[in-house]
Simulated assay, not measured.
Amino acid sequence: MTGERPIGEDDLQAFVDGRLPPSRREAVKAYLADHPAAAAQVERETEQREALRARLSFKAREPIPSRLRIANLMADRQRSSRIRPAAIAAALAWLAVGGILGGWGGVWWASRSQRQAEAMSVADNAIAAHRIYVSERLHPVEVPADQEAHLVQWLSRRVGKPLTAPNLNAQGYRLIGGRLLPDSGAAAAQFMYENTGGNRLTLYARSGGNETQTSFRFEEQDEVSAFSWIDRGLSYVVSAKADRSQLLTIAETIYQQFEAASDPAKGRL
């Protein structure tokens, strides 16, 4: 909007916290409507913040003990010129519940920013690798699909965690192979798939991240769509020239296959 400063990270934080004035809130809503990736991030962070509040809400719902109610404290004061320090401290502790929530939110936001930067770095690297190799016709992969067992074992050893090449035949994509890639000093694996129309899809995986599991994060860069997530200490990114709903179905299929492969009852990781 003319005359208004650009929407920044502070605006998005205030939007999640519900602290924006009405005019600025409308500006942020308009910005999010034009930036789907930012809107998806804000939606996820709002859900996480609400989850944090829900975990702490039990304390706010507890009734204030009668000895700490203002009327009773005032009555005690009239009876005595001195109020016990312990009672004052307890009353202040109840009033500070809201402040604690806000303080924890600030810590949460700082750690969120670091996690978000790490996730974006992995996704950017995965999309860049996707662009480079999907257009390669002679050597799109290092190890072809007819050596799948060797490919999975090799990449698992280099990445440092057990990997699986998902079966996407039902989604119209067949595995054509994979390769080893560098990512910020670490090893990353790329599995490549192709459909009958020649459109290629890649699954990128690397070890790392401070979280054991996250929800899907969507972004789009120059017609390449990507969903990224973390599961059991592995960062995954699935990329393709596909619309969001189609790629989400594929991402969910991959996730479900990984969950089935990690079922202890099946004796696999």
Rank of each mutant, 00 (worst) to 15 (best):
L168W: 13
E118L: 10
L163P: 07
A186L: 13
T202E: 12
M120S: 14
L151G: 00
L138H: 02
I132V: 06
E136I: 01
V122K: 01
P182M: 13
A186S: 15
L180C: 05
G209H: 05
Y193C: 15
E194Q: 06
L155F: 01
R158N: 07
S184A: 11
S135H: 02
P140V: 02
T202H: 05
M120C: 03
G172I: 03
R200Y: 02
T202C: 06
A186H: 03
A205W: 04
V159T: 00
G198D: 11
H139Y: 08
D183Y: 14
L203H: 05
I127F: 00
E211P: 08
L203I: 07
A189H: 10
N125W: 09
A119S: 10
S121F: 05
Q190V: 03
T212W: 08
R131F: 04
T202I: 08
L201Y: 00
A205I: 12
A170H: 07
I127D: 13
L155A: 14
G106A: 09
A123F: 11
G197V: 04
A123Y: 11
R179T: 07
A110P: 01
G106I: 13
V143A: 12
E211F: 14
Y133Q: 09
R206P: 01
G178I: 11
D183M: 05
A205S: 06
Q116Y: 11
L155K: 06
T164R: 10
A188T: 12
G198V: 08
V107I: 11
M192R: 07
S207K: 07
Q116I: 10
R200H: 05
A128H: 05
L168M: 01
S184D: 15
F191E: 13
A165W: 08
S113M: 12
F191H: 07
G178Q: 06
G185Q: 13
L138S: 02
A123N: 02
W109P: 00
T214G: 05
A205M: 13
Q147Y: 03
Y193S: 02
E194A: 04
V134F: 10
Q116M: 09
R206D: 11
R158K: 09
E142Y: 00
T214N: 11
